[in-house]
Design a binder for these strands. Structure first.
Lengths: 273, 273
DNA sequence: CGCTGCTTTGACTGTGATCAAGGCCTGTGG
DNA sequence: CCACAGGCCTTGATCACAGTCAAAGCAGCG
């Protein structure tokens, strides 16, 4: 992950979100610069604290720069459902562009650096630059595709398969974000987090993780995940990564206005090592 | 549901989708007309048949004009997860604007009339009319908000509460679409459909529906749902409708360019009778 | 050290799945 | 008009996956 300092940005930032957006809809250098300039500042959020609270009405869009976070929803009896894991480059609340009240919370899983983009600035960009709107919209759409998968995962798969599926998804996203090394990644989630994400109890997650370990599919200790047997892990989770839209990359610049007729046939898919 | 014939549209169409979009971002008469003209034709799909198949690459966006449909995903062993119910005015595959391959199927629940909008036409509109892009994007966002709720519903609520929650959601959406009359609506879904939507078995759905009936919350027979006790049904499902964004209506025309500073305080919510 | 938070274990329970059969309704064809 | 078939709903019996409760081990950390 090369981190060239950004000239126009008020902080020594990270471009992961730009790179991610560029994957969706090619951006001109001007558009890239405008997006970078829209970022107004960063803050640190300590582990296990809210980045955005349910019910608040933020006037800024937040963006994970470093660390891991999750979207969650709380029920009246204290049960929690995690609806998404967020990694560097992910927007917390793009939805705030269209709605005022947060109807979910966002919490830091480990210590996070969070950047802010004023809603108004982003709206101005959107109105003037359709490609930026498109790129952001696509982000929303991929979010929705992930929700889709989680729904079938939670609704129709066994606990064992669910966890396998989730781990596969996480690895693929990490891979695309340059956070995977040698089949391994930092994964500072607790078993309770996994349970809340997959609609299971902590105890049962513990037992299923043990089984995954016993079956030789993964190693998962001290907040670090290592996949030992990709084919079998993917098979166990019936995982099929196309919904993540992780194409191998960077539509050529010359075609930037041709988003309508981008080739129908599949772009090369990044094969996980 | 008044159905004034549309002058510029090639068919005696229905404007429900325009009305729905207008709820999100006020459209000028010109924009409305452009959208209506983008619709190229309709087709009938018989009950229980695919409107769009998983794996296909449609070049058109489909739109439910009449009838009910669902998005679904099939697992290798034949299990099915329904991820959304679609009613008149809903887009089946807006996602196709950004991705070629359908990664889910859409099936008609009863006999459906489906309108088509060529992707290219819609893309042209989007590029030239940021408000149309915004309105469609918002549609995607509300879809995502519904997925969010379904996730917590399936992940963390009991079968009884899940079904209650789903029925509440359906009623509110029907209400907004003018399909609810006297606390009653047509609901041609089978108990198997409900089961596939909520991650339950058909048998268990049957028993929970019986309990909901026995408790005096609903009547549900011959494809027609009647809610007998709103407060208790909402309580049973812990239902809280704000995520559906069904505000009472029609932001005044004069403010149409002011989507940035729409009032932060809550718009009046339609109270269900 | 002794917290505190996370993981692990065991015993027990229960929600909801599975299997199987029968009933009911509607549409169809003889 | 009746017989039949195919969906769909309903019921009962049994089973298992996963939840709950409780307690003990194990870090890391101030």
């Amino acid at each position: 992950m090369e981190t060239k300092p950004l000239i126009h940005s008020p902080f020594e930032g990270d471009q992961s979100f730009i790179r991610k957006l560029a994957r969706f809809a090619p951006l001109t250098p001007t558009e890239t610069r405008l997006l970078q300039n829209a970022v107004v500042g960063q803050r640190e959020v300590t582990a296990r604290h809210d980045i955005l609270s349910e019910g608040s009405s933020p006037t800024e869009i937040s963006l994970i720069v470093k660390g891991y976070a999750c979207r969650y929803l709380l029920l009246s009896d204290g049960r929690r459902q995690i609806t998404a894991f967020l990694i560097p480059g992910d927007f917390c609340n793009l939805r705030a562009l269209h709605t005022d009240r947060m109807d979910f919370g966002v919490a830091a899983i480990d210590c996070c650096r969070v950047a802010r983009v004023p809603r108004q600035k982003l709206c101005e960009l959107i109105e003037k630059h359709p490609h930026i709107a498109l790129a952001l919209w696509r982000d929303t759409i991929i979010d929705a595709a992930i929700y889709h998968q989680w729904l079938t995962n939670i609704g129709r798969r066994s606990a064992y398969a669910r966890i396998a599926h989730l781990l596969c998804e996480v690895c693929w996203r990490f891979q695309a974000a340059g956070l995977l090394r040698q089949h391994s990644c930092e994964l500072p989630v607790t078993q309770t987090d996994l349970a809340d994400a997959m609609g299971l109890s902590t105890v049962h997650v513990n037992r299923m993780l043990q089984k995954l370990r016993a079956d030789g599919l993964i190693r998962f200790q001290s907040r670090s995940l290592c996949v030992l047997d990709w084919p079998r892990l993917q098979a166990a989770g019936e995982f099929e990564p196309s919904y993540l839209q992780l194409h191998a990359e960077q539509t050529p610049r010359g075609r930037r206005d041709a988003f309508l007729d981008r080739s129908r046939d599949d772009k090369e898919i990044i094969a996980l090592p």
